[in-house]
Design a protein around this nucleic acid. Sequence first.
DNA 1: CGCCTTTGACCGGCGC
DNA 2: GCGCCGGTCAAAGGCG
Length: 334
Amino acid sequence: MSGDQERSHFGFPSHDELSSLVSWKPAGGATDGTGDPRGFGPRAVPPPVSLTDVLRGSIIDYGALARAFGLPCSAPSDVLAPGGMASSRELMADVGNAGNSLAPSSGCGGTATPMTPNSSTSWSSTEAAGEEDAERCKKDEPKQEEEVEKQRVKVEEEGGDASEKVNKCKKKGEKRQRDPRFAFVTESEVDHLDDGFRWRKYGQKAVKNSPYPRSYYRCTTQKCPVKKRVERSYQNPRIVITTYEGKHTHECPATVRGGSTHLFPPPPPAMSTIFCQNLMMQQTNQLNDGNSLQANINPNVYLANLPPSLQQLQLPDYGLLQDIIPSFIHGGQP
DNA sequence: CGCCTTTGACCGGCGC
DNA sequence: GCGCCGGTCAAAGGCG
């Protein structure tokens, strides 16, 4: 249900942080190509913002983000970090190192070619070893690993053993590595962004403390364990939080299909960070039609545009984030 | 016909 | 032990 159209009949209390975070956009507007003229209701939220904005997201600590979004700390990721050309490049590299080939896969998903005309996004990553976001994450951790594991087992035995379901109970105490996760915060009317991959919705659940349900998608490609969750902020229905989990074990269908010529050359099976960088670059270019929004990608500049409240948040005490972000924050250059 | 969404049921983990 | 909650399953139905 790329449903969406709940665009602002909502009148939720505008949240400064949230607004700043999500609605921020460079002067000059970012309608480029997508030009969805629709204003989102009364509050003149930035019109369609492209993926560029996504790549330019801000660095904040997820907890704060969650709070800003009114999420009960539910988002699975720890941090939000800026993307954005050079920045993202650095960041992703770091991330990649930190998390053993991290989830650029998911990243790929994340670097989506938003069919969504309007979206401003931030992305975050969560790492296997990473510190989690309090309770919820603590809960999720084993479970999600389990699911992924379960799925892998299932897939590997494609024949379908009954035993596969038994596997979920194994190694209870054992600490397994969790698949890396990437969370994208997107301002969009559309829930389900087209990221070049094909997804099948396998569930939807009401989210506690939120009127908006969370949708669960799975990559339809065989043997691909990647999943993603999509949910909206209850405080700002325009905010879509997409969380990717796992690594794609295949190329991006969009590139294969040839239909979506927008995506870069076929990504390596494991979706290297390089690919993601390319993707981001590529998409940024397309989305902006080669002009406009490419300036101002310096995270420092970006951060400067954030309200103090958010600037303070840029150095959360999440280990992973610290691993990732320093290069941005402190000079941006090595 | 194949693929996808919808939706209620089910399962397992966690906190009280 | 119980209830809550997140996540997944799977049947049914819709759509191109």
